[in-house]
Amino acid sequence: MVCDRKVHHGPRTWAVACALAVALFGCQSGGSVSDALDPAAVAAGAQQPGVAAPGPGQATQTLGTGPARIAMLLPLSAPGSVGENGRKMLDAAKLAMTDLGNPLLTLTVEDTRGDATYSQQLAVKAITSGAKAVIGPTELPAAQHVAKLSGSNRPVVLALADNFAGGPGVYAVCLTEADSAAAGAGAIAAKGGKKFVLLVPAGASADIFEKRVANSLSVYGAALAITIPYTSADSAAKAVADMGSLVDAPDAVIVASGDSNPSPILIALKAKGIPGKSTSVVGTNRWLDHPTSPLFEGAYIATLDQHETGPISDRFKATFNYQADVNVAYAYDMVALTAGIASAAGPNGFNRQVFENPNGFRGSTGLFRFRADGSSERSMPFYRIEKGALKLVAKSTPSF
């Protein structure tokens, strides 16, 4: 169930992509709007006492005239880069609707203003107002709250929050650092690596990292020898010294950096001769948020294939007069996916079995699929950093 990215995107393309899932799993069961959430969950979504209401935002926008009602929650009037990204996602949605969705979807776009509490309220409203699917929110606390809600007939939520782990029926769309680390580690294990060390920022996400990487390695009979959480208060040298005292000659060291620059850890590793002939360094997509340093040289990274955005990048630039980025790609793909399902199965074809089709979907961010726990998996190319640039080591797989 994979579309050929060389084919111009259109309703027929995404209809073919979704038809197999619909044939296998059928359509959504009936149920009233009151079944969408438990009453307690609706109350929990109400604005919290003492929290100031957000300022004026953009008016609700409606795109398309199709029978499938889809809600999209974006931080359109938020300040700074958050609002800029929200507006990019809106332009992506407009392009996807022009390409695919106008006759299939009625897409209602609400401005969350970048306020997590207000975004949470809008999400509950969308869930309980008959939307067949919700695209967004982008605010991590709001996505995490929605993932905790329960309901017998809740529509799926395609969350656009960064570093969101997902939840049942609330899918993490964006590539997370844990997914990048797991894919990179798996690529080394596929070549014979058996013993791995994970250096990860301390915090609630450390356990998620460990599980994702360990699961990826287990496919190849490899394992994590140890996970070493570190904090900004800890010296990089201490974390690396701890590793040296606990593990002898690992095949690879996986370095997650979170929001921080990985350079301090890399300096400490280099002092120990890592990377070297017997030990590789595996980085993550978050490294690429920072200027490439000579310290990155020789490290491996699994990340999104920039060439996958080709089918929409040129048209997006021609339409909106600026370059598409990953935020554009994520938003375009989610609108395209809902349009494809509406074309193949009709407005009642939105259910978790369809979205969790193990064969996945191909869009402008490549091949991806959603798991039952809400996390996502992506087929990504594997790179080695050479002379400050990403050099392809292995192409992404054409199927799962």
Rank of each mutant, 00 (worst) to 15 (best):
Ala123Ser: 15
Cys27Asn: 01
Gly298Val: 10
Lys211Leu: 08
Ala142Ser: 05
Ala344Met: 03
Gly360Phe: 06
Gly366Cys: 03
Lys387Thr: 14
Asp35Asn: 05
Val393Leu: 06
Phe361Cys: 08
Ser263Trp: 02
Val281Met: 10
Asp314His: 12
Pro54Gln: 11
Ala299Phe: 01
Lys238Asn: 09
Gly10Leu: 04
Ala116Asp: 13
His145Ile: 03
Leu246Val: 05
Gly221Glu: 09
Gly340Asn: 12
Leu158Asp: 09
Ala159Phe: 14
Asp314Tyr: 04
Val335Gly: 12
Tyr383Trp: 03
Gly166Cys: 10
Asn215Tyr: 07
Ala92Trp: 06
Leu73Tyr: 09
Pro262Phe: 09
Ala165Phe: 10
Ala43Lys: 14
Ser129Trp: 13
Val335Ile: 14
Ala389Thr: 08
Ala233Gln: 07
Ala36Thr: 13
Asp325Ile: 08
Phe196Gln: 02
Gln306Met: 13
Phe316Glu: 09
Val157Lys: 12
His290Glu: 01
Ala68Arg: 00
Tyr332Asn: 11
Val326Lys: 04
Ile267Ser: 11
Val219Tyr: 13
Val33Pro: 06
Ile228Leu: 12
Ala185Ser: 04
Gly101Cys: 15
Asp259Ser: 07
Leu90Ile: 00
Asp333Trp: 00
Gln323Phe: 12
Phe400Gly: 13
Ile188Trp: 05
Pro137His: 03
Pro291Arg: 12
Ser205Glu: 07
Glu84Arg: 11
Ala342Ile: 08
Gly57Arg: 06
Ala21His: 05
Pro39Val: 12
Ala183Met: 13
Phe350Thr: 11
Asp289Cys: 15
Ala178Gly: 01
Gln48Lys: 00
Thr397Glu: 15
Lys270Val: 12
Thr303Ala: 02
Arg12Trp: 03
Cys18Leu: 01
Asp289Asn: 15
Phe320Asp: 10
Pro201Cys: 06
Ile341Thr: 11
Leu392Thr: 04
Ala339Phe: 07
Ala204Met: 06
Phe382Arg: 02
Pro294Asp: 14
Val16Ala: 07
Ala78Gly: 10
Ala19Glu: 01
Leu367Trp: 10
Lys238Met: 14
Leu224His: 00
Pro11Ala: 05
Gln323Gly: 07
Pro311Gln: 11
Gly101Pro: 04
Ile188Ser: 02
Ala252Asn: 11
Gln47Trp: 01
Phe382Tyr: 12
Ser34Tyr: 00
Gly366Ser: 00
Ser216His: 03
Ala225Lys: 02
Lys277Ser: 14
Gly83Glu: 02
Leu76Arg: 00
Lys191Met: 10
Ala143Ser: 14
Val134Thr: 09
Leu24Gln: 10
Ser245Arg: 04
Phe368Asn: 05
Ile312Leu: 10
Glu110Thr: 11
Cys3Asn: 03
Asp91Phe: 03
Ser313Ile: 10
Lys211Cys: 09
Gly192Ser: 01
Ala123Met: 11
Ala189Ile: 05
Val109Ser: 02
Val134His: 09
Ala339Asp: 00
Pro67Phe: 03
Ser129Met: 13
Asp162Ala: 06
Asp259Gln: 03
Lys94Leu: 02
Ile70Asp: 09
Leu367Glu: 09
Asn359Leu: 00
Asn359Thr: 04
Ser180Val: 05
Ala345Glu: 02
